[in-house]
C-alpha cells in the first residue's frame, strides 16, 4: 500500500465535485493510454470569467481520484487565467503530500483543465466571430432605426452575450433588438443602451 496522507485519503474516499454538468460551458476528456487512466471535466464560467461550477469523473487510482478532487476545489472561483496557473505542486501540497511515484497522477487533472479552458475560449471566439458578423448585418438592416447610433459588443460567453447600443433613436426598443439578436445568434442576448 502507498503511504497516503489523511487529506488525500479523504479526497479519495469523499471526492468533491464529482459527476457531470447539465449544459456545461466547456468540457474535456483526457486519457493516458499507457496507464489507462482517464478523466472528464465539465465547467461553467460566469460573466466575470470565473469558474462557477466544476465537475469531474475519473478512472484511476486513489491518487488520481484525490488529485482530480483537489484540482476542482482549488480551481473553483478562480478566473480562467488564474486556474491555468495551478501547478502540480499546488495540488500535491493541497493534499498534504503524495508518494513521488504518484506525482504523475496530478498531471492528468491539469491537462484536463487546460483543455477545458481551451475549449471554452475556442467556443467563445466562435461566438464572438458569429456575433460580429451578425452585428454588421443587423446594423445595415436596422440602419434607419438605429440612426447614427452604433452597437458594440460588451461581453461574450459561449452561450450568452451582451451588447451595448450607443446613441440612436429613442424609438428602438431594446427588447426588439434582443429578440432579433437572439433569433440570429441562438444565444441569450442582453442589450443595454447608452444615450
Amino acid at each position: 500500500m502507498w503511504k497516503y496522507s489523511e487529506k488525500l485519503m479523504d479526497h479519495f474516499m469523499n471526492p468533491r465535485n464529482t459527476g457531470q454538468l447539465l449544459n456545461p460551458d466547456c468540457h474535456s476528456e483526457v486519457g493516458s493510454p499507457q496507464c489507462g487512466d482517464a478523466m472528464t471535466l465539465d465547467i461553467k464560467v460566469d460573466d466575470e470569467d470565473r469558474i462557477a461550477e466544476i465537475k469531474f469523473m475519473t478512472f484511476g487510482c486513489a491518487g488520481a481520484i484525490a488529485a482530480a478532487s483537489a484540482l476542482t476545489e482549488i480551481a473553483k472561483g478562480k478566473t480562467l487565467e488564474e486556474a491555468l496557473g495551478i501547478s502540480n505542486d499546488q495540488i500535491v501540497e493541497f493534499l498534504g503530500g503524495m508518494p513521488e511515484e504518484k506525482y504523475h497522477c496530478s498531471v492528468m487533472g491539469n491537462e484536463a483543465l487546460s483543455m477545458a479552458i481551451d475549449d471554452f475560449r475556442h467556443r467563445r471566439d466562435n461566438t464572438a466571430e458569429h456575433l460580429e458578423s451578425i452585428l454588421r448585418e443587423i446594423s445595415e438592416d436596422l440602419a434607419a432605426a438605429i440612426g447614427n447610433g452604433s452597437i458594440s459588443i460588451e461581453h461574450v460567453h459561449p452561450i450568452r452575450v451582451s451588447v451595448r447600443l450607443s446613441g440612436g433613436d429613442d424609438g428602438i426598443v431594446t427588447e426588439v433588438l434582443e429578440k432579433e439578436l437572439q433569433k440570429r445568434t441562438g444565444k441569450t442576448v442582453k442589450v443595454s443602451v447608452t444615450r
Binding site: Q34, C35, G36, C61, G63, A64, E101, K102, C105, V107
Partner: peptide
C-alpha cells in the same frame, strides 16, 4: 497485474 506507479507503467 498492474500497479500505477510511474505514469509509463504498462498494464
Amino acid at each position: 497485474g498492474s500497479v500505477c506507479s510511474s505514469g509509463d507503467e504498462s498494464s
